[in-house]
Design a protein around this nucleic acid. Structure first.
Lengths: 264, 264
DNA sequence: CGATTTGTTCTAATATTTGGAACGGCTTTC
DNA sequence: GAAAGCCGTTCCAAATATTAGAACAAATCG
């Protein structure tokens, strides 16, 4: 996995430690926050260093104290804000794609996801659900593995055989569901099929009982920069419905791709 | 103005510079990215330092290169990721407020917003709309000025007269709509009224033809940390309706405030 | 009520960051 | 087409900022 990540030649260690702390804070799920001592122990950084780092991060709103008389820390709204600025700088921003995703959601009454490729994972950047009461496991901002999802396989299509092999050698493969593709060879064949078809199908490869149909959005270089998926329970995703989804998605993705300068 | 910000006793300067760079990157609106030299000039940090810092930030996905062969930088999806984790661990999260906001939205068939105070602006953290087809200009994660909105004025209520004056001297005032309050004196009177009433009204101060009613959520220190607003076209926001909104919001905000330890 | 653990402060030793200079590649300009 | 300028990148030694650990008071636990 390391070979895929960007490794700075001249890392700023102080900053790296601060980002490690931020990452550790992010993994906290409670609203109680995390104490300085806990961070110190977990990351093997001196208490005083953690203290000073959190103090500085707090000045920028990236972390906050957890509340009442708490001395524990949470991620702060300044980080929320900064995070929400990210999509605006990326190429698809001007395309006004959300109404299109909503139309797709309304038409098929299934969950519509949009994802981008980042650091050998898919980041869900937009999610439209048919019924607000039905919540699936994934949420905006979360990451999904490439090899087990329809969106992810679209991104894998841009990998050379060597890159794909490297990917499979470096990541930890988990059989999430009945049909998860777990070997390089099978994936190679699958990707060939996807490239030929122009769409990807996740047939119970990530969640048992769930099928996901996805198509790519490409930029002017032909690279798949994003993708849209429609997913639902297998029994509702009939062949006929999938065919209709394919047609609709095809139109939307072609339009967004041309927005990015993709021809043909 | 400064007195509001948290000033670390022992700042980690290296980290502070990195966060300055991140903030500068955030202000960029284009999809072209920002060059190392530009950042270096703008923030008076040596080119090599900017380079090394960006390299480290890139390793964590907080920034990205703008394109395959580009040497300019954009905010990265790792930051998006981190930002989306913020609401999940915030104190109000445990209050499970979204259903309450939805109830408000359903009851009045108007847009319900929730905002928090951060860095002298309001950050919209949740937005519930009665009809998905009607879109207002604001979106989750975006910032609104304090002086022109109902939510913002709630936060201004915590300012001392000196702080308020400093605020008005340091920000750029734009008359967004017919009734935008643009002077310190008028705002001072308005805030006194709001403090007395316990709610804030934006009567066509941000968008012409739009009225917004807001009430504060306070934490254990009595500080207004968040607020909820209901907004709609003036003709629909009758006195009677506003009275009903006031009652409903009052209940919800009191409940959420007590959740944060606010007494009385 | 004693024992532990917490956050915070301080200091001196250390390792880190720093900015400037140098380099090669690229674009612009004359 | 040559030269000048700007770019990102690398390197280095000087100097600064960070670090870990100890010390302390306050809070928590048994």
């Amino acid at each position: 996995m390391e070979s895929f990540e960007h490794i700075p030649k001249y890392p700023v260690q102080t900053l790296a430690k601060a980002l490690d702390i931020l990452q550790y804070l992010k993994e906290n799920t409670s609203t109680e926050g995390v104490s300085i001592s806990e961070i110190s122990r977990a990351l093997s950084i001196g208490k005083s260093g953690v203290h000073r780092t959190l103090d500085t991060l707090m000045a920028y709103g990236f972390v906050e104290k957890a509340g009442a008389n708490s001395t524990s820390y949470l991620l702060g709204w300044g980080l929320f804000d900064a995070g929400n600025a990210v999509p605006k700088q990326h190429t698809l921003n001007g395309a006004n794609y959300i109404p299109q995703l909503e139309k797709l959601c309304n038409r098929f009454s299934e969950t519509v996801n949009m994802g981008v490729f980042n650091n050998y994972e898919t980041v869900i950047i937009c999610k439209i659900e048919p019924n607000i009461k039905l919540r699936t496991n994934t949420q905006v901002g979360e990451r999904e593995p490439l090899y087990a999802t329809a969106l992810g396989k679209l991104f894998l299509c841009d990998f050379t055989p060597e890159e794909l092999q490297g990917y499979f050698e470096n990541i930890e493969i988990s059989p999430f569901a009945a049909n998860t593709i777990t070997t390089y060879e099978k994936m190679k064949a699958e990707l060939a099929k996807i490239r030929h078809q122009g769409y990807a199908l996740d047939n119970e490869e990530y969640f048992d009982g769930m099928i996901c149909f996805a198509m790519p959005i490409k930029d002017f270089t032909g690279k798949t920069v994003s993708g849209i998926s429609v997913s639902g329970p297998s029994r509702r995703m009939t062949a006929e419905k999938l065919e209709n989804i394919k047609e609709s998605l095809s139109t939307v993705c072609a339009q967004l791709s041309s927005f990015l300068g993709y021809n043909n």
